[in-house]
Nucleic acid binder design. Structure first.
Length: 131
DNA sequence: GTTCTCACA
DNA sequence: TGTGAGTA
């Protein structure tokens, strides 16, 4: 079973980029930030496996949630490789993530307020135009 | 044809 | 994060 993972087909950066829906540039950037660690060929080419496709998706989700690369890196290292959401001995990070989650809640609320304000302005503008 | 690193009118 | 340069 583990043997299977080790002999997975390896792909170059371009192929992984297409599969994951990101640019090769982004993939190199993730590596620079320690989020994604590809293998290397003798010639220096980065080599990835199917496993990396899902890793990239998780990275994108976390990044989209507003986490910086440092936090994403911490999370990645606290999850058992193939497992979806497993946390070994990283309970110490939970508190930090809870703070981050709270900040996200605050941002959502602020975004809602901004949207409401915009809605008011828009209807006021339309009322003026129709008058 | 692809990727690599480095640099930025 | 895109793009071009000069390679491997």
């Amino acid at each position: 079973m583990k043997v299977k993972a080790e002999r997975q087909r390896r792909v170059q950066i371009g192929a992984l980029a297409r599969r994951a829906g990101v640019s090769p540039r982004a993939l190199r950037y993730y590596e620079e930030k320690g989020l994604l660690v590809p293998g290397r060929t003798a010639g220096g080419y980065r080599v990835y496996t199917e496993e990396h496709v899902e890793t990239v998706r998780r990275i994108r989700i976390l990044l989209a949630a507003g986490l910086n690369s440092d936090m994403v890196s911490e999370i990645m290292s606290c999850m058992v490789d193939d497992g979806e959401f497993l946390a070994p001995g990283c309970e110490d990070l939970i508190a930090e993530f809870e703070r981050k989650r709270r900040r996200i809640d605050t941002q959502i609320a602020e975004l809602h307020d901004g949207r409401s304000a915009l809605t008011g302005i828009i209807s006021a503008g339309k009322a003026f135009a129709d008058s």
